[in-house]
Amino acid sequence: MDFPLMDIEPIWLSLQLAGVTVVILLALGTPIAWWLAQTQSRSRVVVEALVALPLVLPPTVLGFYLLILLGPHGWVGGPVQALTGSALSFSFAGLVLASTLYSLPFVVQPLHSAFESIGKNPMETAQSLGASRLDAFFSVITPLARRGYLTAMVLGFAHTLGEFGVVLMVGGNIPGKTKVISIEIYDRVEVLEYAQAHILSAGLLIFSFLVLVMVYSVNRRLPMQVT
């Protein structure tokens, strides 16, 4: 069996999208998760629900509203178009924004539970030893939350890699710009090119499986907290 020539562009685009999204999500998810773990505020449940919303919504719903929001006449897309000349819909930047929202719960929730299980004591202890809150966060809390961070990164990355509906709605299907693996697979199946669809699908399946095996085995080996 000879392999048809593969277009690696969708693969490369998917990796880029997932990478950029994870970096943004870590920066964004850390303060949200920390706030959720610390606050006594009643608005906490609202924020928790908002963060979890992408878990239950059909991707098309999220995609639909994002399309309107990011388009040339949308609240976000309009001003962006006025500034840069093009709206965010059907662009890589638009995809990043959509993926960030879509994968937010996959990053915030592991971090939130990691911060919660760490509790107040390590922060108090570090402060009593002269560390500022920020210093204590990076020197104590972050290393203690590394399991949570690893899980958050992998889930965020893998979930972004696998998204379909939102990407299709917001990004369309523009080769080299918004055409990611999952859409490429759909395209191949549509035109009955099963061999190529197989290669991409099996590749994604094996990749996802290996990553999850790695995460679970690393998590098992990281030391637990001592009192």
Partner: peptide, 8 residues
Amino acid sequence: QESRLFPH
């Protein structure tokens, strides 16, 4: 009461 050493 607990030593609260940093495990990492």
